[in-house]
Each structure stands twice: as structure tokens, then as C-alpha cells.
Simulated assay, not measured.
Amino acid sequence: MEKPLYRKVISDLENKIDSMRANDQLPSERQLLTDYDVSRNTIRLALKDLEDRGVIYRLHGKGTFVAGRYLNKLNIGGMYSFSEDTSRYGRTATTQNKKLELVVPNHNISDQLNLQEEDKTYRLIRLRLADDEPMIYSKTYLPEKLFPDLKITDLENDTLYSVLKKKYNQRSVMAFEDVQAVSLDDEASASLHEKVGSPSLKIYRKTINDKNVPVEFTISLARGDKFVYRSRQYNHLV
């Protein structure tokens, strides 16, 4: 299938950014419209993607600039797509869906998903790999009442978010994340082929849909030697 136009713009801009220095200014939005001969919406989608991933930053009234990267590692922050980010580094991403089971969640998970005491969730255990190297071990909790009759076979040839959208008409629009530095326990270290106690980034992620309803809560452990959590902050007081 042919890439959407904005994806082509993203790829081309990333190639150009690779040869630029941190804080170099990109062409204006008007100039990009001329260069690529596409709609304004296409350019804005491309710039938003690059900004969300920390590749560029914008200063109001001044323009768009190349962001500095101190560590050349996969970024696990923001509305993160493991598959897309991995492919940008020339690697092939795969997912092993280890187990899907219906469980009674503990109080903390129920609270994150706004569930009643009797509500159950599906727990999906997954391993994400890059060129067959284990990278992220995760447990995802999905409310049964939103995703009845979810099967692990649904995920054989499609991504989780795509299944939730196609089968259940649930569209994720925002994610909240907390990140903690931890040491790998026995379970995660075995799956990630790392020593017990190796450094890891533990990511707690809650996703909400376009009706402001929590649809997913995921706890992931990412290898500390392979990932960074990249963010940006703006001072709105100046």
C-alpha cells in the first residue's frame, strides 16, 4: 500500500534534518507548501509528527527548528509507536503476543480504568522485538465491557490499536505516562534476555478515547541500554 502524502513529507524532511545541526531553522510552512506541492493540512500533519517525536521544535513567531539529540537511542516518550520508531532506525519491529486472559484487576488498575469492583479486564502480555532482539516487555489491561470477545487471534495480523478501532470503533486520542527507573525482575529479565537487576525504564501508560473514557492501561519494561525518554518543555512565563 502506498504511503500517505504526509508520511512521504516526513521521510524527506527527516533525511534533510539528518544533515542539519541542532537549532538550525527549517523552511517556513509557506515554503514547504511550495517545495512539496501538497495541501497545508499535509504539511501540518508532517510537522506535528516530527514535533511530537522531539525531532523538531517550534517557537511562536520565530519558526521551526531542529531539536538537539544527546543520545541516539529509540525514544519511548509521547504517543509512541514502537514499530514506526524502530523502522526509522532501519530495523524490523515484531510483536509476540504471549498471552491474553480475562482477569479481575487489582485496585490500582481498576482505578486507572474507572472500573467498578465487579468489572473484569483482558490482560495482554506482549514482547516487542527489533531485528528479533527483545526490547520491551509489557502487560496491557483492556476493559471487558468495552472489548467483549477479544481474542488473541485478532492480533495475529494487525496492531492492537488497529484492532480496537476496527472491531470496536474505539479510537485512542491521548495518552498519559509516568516513567520510573527500575531494575528488571525475574519475569521480565527472562523475556528480555537480560540479567536480573539490569536497568530498565518502567512506563505506566493510560490511554483515553475521544469520549474521554480510559480504554487501556499498560505497564511496560523497556531495556535501559536501548531507550531514552525524550521530552521538551516550554516556559510560558516569558
Rank of each mutant, 00 (worst) to 15 (best):
E2L: 14
P4Q: 11
L5A: 15
R7K: 12
V9P: 10
I10D: 05
S11E: 15
E14V: 14
E14D: 07
K16H: 13
I17E: 10
I17A: 06
D18C: 08
S19K: 14
R21L: 12
Q25T: 07
Q25S: 14
L26P: 11
E29I: 15
R30W: 00
T34H: 08
T34C: 00
T34I: 14
T34D: 09
Y36A: 04
D37T: 11
S39I: 03
R40P: 05
R40I: 06
L45S: 07
A46C: 07
D52T: 13
D52M: 12
D52V: 06
R53T: 10
R53C: 08
I56Y: 03
Y57W: 10
R58T: 12
H60V: 10
G61Q: 06
G63M: 03
F65T: 05
A67V: 04
G68L: 05
G68H: 10
R69F: 06
N72V: 04
K73W: 02
K73C: 10
M79A: 12
M79T: 10
M79Y: 09
Y80F: 15
Y80Q: 02
S81N: 13
E84M: 09
E84K: 14
D85T: 15
R88L: 14
Y89F: 14
R91S: 04
R91D: 05
T92C: 05
T94K: 13
T95H: 04
K98C: 05
L100Q: 08
V103F: 01
V103N: 02
P105M: 05
N106A: 01
N106Q: 03
I109R: 01
S110N: 05
D111C: 03
Q112V: 01
Q116E: 12
K120S: 12
T121K: 00
R123W: 00
I125W: 02
R128T: 02
A130P: 08
E133Y: 06
M135T: 02
M135W: 01
Y137P: 04
S138D: 11
T140C: 06
Y141G: 01
Y141I: 01
E144G: 00
L146I: 07
D149I: 00
L150I: 05
I152V: 12
I152A: 07
T153C: 05
T153D: 14
L155F: 13
L155D: 13
N157T: 09
N157R: 09
L160F: 08
L160E: 12
L160S: 07
Y161K: 04
Y161V: 09
V163H: 03
Y168L: 10
Y168F: 13
Y168S: 08
N169V: 00
N169H: 08
S172W: 00
S172V: 07
M174N: 09
E177T: 14
E177S: 08
Q180M: 13
A181R: 09
V182Y: 00
L184I: 09
E187T: 09
A190L: 07
S191L: 12
H193W: 03
V196Y: 03
G197N: 09
S198L: 06
S198E: 08
L201F: 15
K202I: 01
R205P: 04
K206N: 14
I208L: 10
N209L: 07
N209F: 09
N209T: 06
V215L: 15
F217G: 01
T218K: 03
T218Q: 06
S220Y: 01
D225K: 06
K226D: 07
F227P: 02
S231V: 10
N235P: 02
